[in-house]
């Protein structure tokens, strides 16, 4: 986002708009000057979000139904987005799946699904958007990865590796687009209470999507490269990354 100035008209494109974190973020960004292009795979859910944003007085809302994990359709999806807006001030990517690591070990179709949904397809979509941002020479790209991408852990290294790969991709993209004045933000949330994590028992380390959304807005405003949300995860991950393998292997993390 070049600016969070409420008086400037800006277009926010969201890939994975039905995600709980995206919903919170969209609501917080919504004002009479924001135009939204929302992409997701669930038409009814997108329509409900659209109604909500109309009541919140968004300037305009366009919705696109697409399976974002389908890499072969990435070009088509991006064309559909660009047919609905002349410029992208913020591209926000929030879709993803957690998957079940243990199940995936039994069936590599699941492994492929996890990697494709969280990494390959995102990389394809970002590559389609890159020339657009090159030309624009302005704007921001914010993508949700995860703290799970910082260190491979026995319980979810398939998801973790996809998110870790995505973080590396974003680091390179940030480097590439820096000369065009385009800001790329890597978002690394910790535990967030959303549909993705409904099977987990919640405790002190858990945050609400609203809190994460506020953190994302702040990081965009400050033009940060990468942000842990909530911020304390930075320290947790420093420690987790420092633990030697001999000790790490004794944990069930």
């Amino acid at each position: 986002m070049t600016n969070l100035d409420p008086d400037l008209i800006q277009t926010i494109v969201v890939l994975g708009a039905t995600s709980a974190i995206a919903k919170a973020f969209i609501r917080q960004c919504c004002n009479a000057q924001t135009k939204f292009v929302l992409v997701g795979r669930d038409e009814e859910a997108l329509d409900a979000i659209k109604s909500d944003l109309i009541i919140r007085k968004a300037r305009s809302i366009e919705t696109i139904v697409a399976d974002l994990a389908d890499c072969f359709r990435a070009k088509e999806t991006v064309q559909a987005v660009m047919a609905r807006c002349s410029r992208v001030d913020l591209l926000f990517i929030s879709y993803g799946i957690l998957g079940d690591n243990a199940e995936a070990l039994k069936d590599n179709v699941l492994t492929q699904e996890i990697i494709t949904s969280n990494f390959t397809s995102v990389a394809c979509l970002l590559s389609e958007f890159t020339p657009i941002f090159e030309k624009q020479k302005t704007g921001s790209i914010a993508v949700i990865t995860s703290v799970a991408g910082d260190r491979g852990r026995q319980s979810n290294y398939i998801y973790g590796s996809a998110k870790g790969g995505l973080a590396l991709f974003l680091q390179g993209l940030r480097h590439y687009l820096s000369k065009y004045g385009v800001h790329v933000l890597t978002i690394k949330p910790g535990f967030v209470d959303t549909p993705m994590t409904s099977a987990f028992k919640k405790g002190l380390l858990w945050a609400s999507p609203e809190k994460i959304a506020r953190g994302i807005r702040h990081a965009l405003l400050k033009k940060k490269s990468s942000v842990y949300l909530p911020g304390f995860w930075k320290w947790i991950m420093i420690i987790i990354k420092l633990v030697p393998e001999s000790i790490f292997h004794k944990t069930k993390l």
Binding site: A24, D193, K201, W206, S208, E210, K211
Partner: peptide, 17 residues
């Protein structure tokens, strides 16, 4: 805004759902 209360009914303790 609302979500923090959502799980406030869940007692902390063991890691089972």
């Amino acid at each position: 805004m609302v979500v923090m209360y959502r799980n406030s009914t869940i007692p902390t303790g063991a890691m089972t759902p």
